[in-house]
């Protein structure tokens, strides 16, 4: 993978073998462009969290390199991490402290954070995630959704160039999910790059510009969401009262995997040298097929995912 200066997260041949001998991450080449909202997809157990922990210097890679904001990790952790906000595998809080004191604590851990602006920044972060009124409550009394919000607030204590959010909508109700999606979009508009891991394909499709798919420790694909969806091209669908004749014409033009029903025909366009859709339509009309509907059903990210992993969302063994 070519190293572009614009990559905010870049790994080359990144691998992690745990002591048991299990290869959790296998030669990962990940490249997250600056300014993107990058969806990181994969079933449970596919190595997403191990990857995220290696990106942030919590786990030592067994092989390969990580560059975060252009600097090598974990060597440059002290310079890089103050510009990175993270939510890793859910929030972790001091139960016996209030929400506000939790944030003060995390802010104090950052040696670059200015103590003079600390209370203001904490208050602003609480407001931003909708916890302004609950900041004085003990974290013990927080609901799962409130804890998740507080975890997000901790990632937003400073302006960040990169936000690594692992399953940020876990435990939130639909309203909360919408708010987080809005927040992610706002953050991206402010110029932060957002690296978002999720198992909710809908969510990725709604907010992400780019995505990568992992399965069993390997990176299967990465690119813009549009490219990914295009890659798994949708099926061609022709609505007609004469499906038999339509099928014959389509077959002549190289359309594969034809499925004939009473309502019409669907088929897959060949990957190499696909026929031009306009010509295909004209050919159908020339052959006097009464075409009621003609079009390419766009593949959802879920189709892409299933096509790529071949396993849906089951836990990898």
């Amino acid at each position: 993978m070519a190293r572009t200066a614009e990559a905010v997260v870049e790994t080359s041949a990144l691998s992690k073998r745990y002591r048991g001998g299990q290869l959790a991450v296998d030669s990962l080449d990940l490249s997250v462009p600056r300014g993107s909202v990058f969806g990181f997809l994969g079933p449970n157990g596919s190595g997403k969290t191990t990857t995220i922990r290696m990106l942030l210097g919590l786990i030592e890679p067994s092989g390969g390199d990580v560059r975060l904001l252009g600097e090598p990790m974990p060597d440059a952790a002290r310079r890089v991490l103050p510009r990175v906000g993270a939510l890793i595998e859910g929030p972790a809080l001091y139960d016996y402290l209030s929400g506000r004191d939790n944030l003060l604590r995390y802010d104090a851990a950052d040696p670059t954070a200015d103590p003079r602006t600390r209370t203001d920044r904490v208050a602003a972060a609480l407001e931003r995630v909708g916890l302004g009124a609950a900041g004085h409550k003990k974290a013990r009394a927080y609901s799962l959704g409130m804890k998740q919000r507080l975890g997000l607030a901790a990632a937003l204590l400073q302006p960040r160039q990169l936000l690594v959010l692992d399953e940020p909508t876990n435990g939130l109700d639909p309203q909360g999910m919408r708010e987080i999606r809005t927040l992610v979009r706002d953050l991206a508009e402010d110029g932060s790059t957002v690296f978002l891991s999720s198992h909710l394909l809908d969510e990725i499709e709604q907010v992400c510009t780019h995505a990568a798919v992992m399965s069993r420790g390997r990176l299967i694909t990465q690119g813009t969401v549009a490219e990914l969806s295009a890659g798994a091209r949708g099926r061609l669908s022709v609505g007609t009262s004469d499906p038999a004749r339509a099928a014959a014409v389509l077959k002549e033009h190289g359309v594969l995997d034809l499925d004939v029903t009473e309502e019409g025909v669907t088929g897959e366009l060949p990957l190499s040298d696909p026929p031009d859709l306009a010509e295909l339509n004209a050919a159908l009309v020339r052959a006097e097929v009464p075409v009621r509907a003609f079009g390419l059903a766009r593949a959802s990210l879920e189709d892409v995912f299933v096509a790529l992993t071949g396993e849906g969302f089951d836990v990898a063994g």
């Binding site: 919590l58 890793i88 809080l93 950052d110 901790a154």
Partner: peptide, 17 residues
Amino acid sequence: SGTLRYLLVAPAGRTRL
């Protein structure tokens, strides 16, 4: 409690912590 990982990415620094 899991707070160790957040202190480390803050980054508190392992030696400093």
